[in-house]
Design a protein around this nucleic acid. Structure first.
Lengths: 209, 209
DNA sequence: CATCGAATGGACTATCCGGTCCATTTAATG
DNA sequence: CATTAAATGGACCGGATAGTCCATTCGATG
């Protein structure tokens, strides 16, 4: 249970052969799949074992610190997915059409995801006694907000967004709106709030005619 | 595990004597306290038993459907707390000073709450196989958003907020911003996003001078 | 082909914990 | 004071599951 060693994440793993790496990947992918469909709380290591055609010893061979370490790897995997799903628009918010495309991608992505948020579920499961989980989320938010902020600055430079607004603060507000929209969607099943949140933020970024 | 009966919540309980009600309340309060400090995932019925000076049979006497039913009661309890903590300002958003007071209350409340959100943790734990948990959250959001919307309408009627904005949509965006601000705070420990979200929403509601 | 470490298989253990059961005490009511 | 139902105490059970251990196979390298 306890995660004593603070590293053991990406780099320092011990001599993985290509075959080993493939197996490790298969485990993480499979675990992510199972968790997405069933929820962490109802996913046992045996479920993962079965879904990935591996044995118990393999699970502990690749994740010697146990289940928490595996869940951490899954969380990192899911966090990457979140941003990947928004690309390439997220990295090219340089004109209004791209902003609208991005808006639609985000809304559609979460509409499809529906009532489950693998990431939130993993995070609350691992809880604060596993500090690495927070770094994953913080890092995700930083990258996400950074991309938005870069977009705003780029638009301001082009005169397409008002120079009067503080890009960093606006990016924070927009990111918060998205997160909240998703949270509310998890309960209500509707993206209505997500849409309102993004649209209100974007409205505030339109230049006065 | 299964919660077959859809009621068994507030009303229909079977003949509780004053003493019984007191015990039941003690259990819910105590469970909420333990969960807040330790997280659901690491709270067993024995922990609750110990913290509330009760016996196993009492737990099942008051919550015959088991742990899920108890967690549900705790969730309802925590949801009520959320709104209560914002009163009376939340119900009197009729002038700008009250809006600012409310804003400060919300931010301060969550600043103090810090990195734990008992409600989110309960909800993700119970998951979708317990439908009642969603009603609790949806109901919370409805009441919360309703109060905000009433405030906006009241301000518009007084000419203190622009009549051009759609009160319902603005309330949705503001609520989403708050939720997202809290979510981000859970990861980063900072209320910066919460502040940005609320302030940007309020800025959009100021009448042009 | 021999060797050695990585990769794999799967039985087994230890333990935690939700839930059951029955015995006992408390308290309200006639 | 007798009766009855609610309230309480706590031992016990059964299942689930994280983690261990050792034996076996695979594959690269000399």
């Amino acid at each position: 249970m306890r995660a004593e060693r603070t590293s053991a994440e990406r780099g320092s793993a011990k001599a993985l052969t290509p075959k080993g790496e493939a197996t490790r990947r298969r485990i993480v992918d499979g675990a992510a799949r199972v968790i997405r469909s069933r929820g962490v709380a109802h996913t046992s290591l045996d479920d993962v074992r079965e879904a990935t055609a591996t044995s118990k010893s393999q699970l502990f061979h690749y994740f010697p610190e146990g289940k928490d370490q595996l869940l951490l790897a899954v969380a990192a995997h899911e966090a990457d997915r979140v941003l990947d799903d928004q690309r390439p628009a997220l990295d090219a918010l340089d004109d209004w059409p791209t902003w609208i495309v991005w808006r639609d991608i985000v809304i559609e992505r979460y509409r499809q995801q529906g009532r489950t948020c693998p990431l939130s579920v993993l995070v609350t499961q691992l809880g604060r006694e596993v500090p690495e989980v927070q770094s994953i989320i913080v890092h995700l938010f930083e990258r996400w907000q950074g991309a938005i902020e870069r977009g705003i600055l780029s638009m301001q430079a082009a005169g397409s967004m008002p120079a009067s607004v503080d890009a960093a603060s606006a990016a924070r507000a927009l990111l918060a709106g998205i997160q909240g929209g998703v949270v509310i969607m998890l309960a209500t099943g509707s993206v209505e709030h997500l849409e309102s949140a993004i649209d209100h933020s974007l409205d505030a970024l339109r230049v006065a005619p």
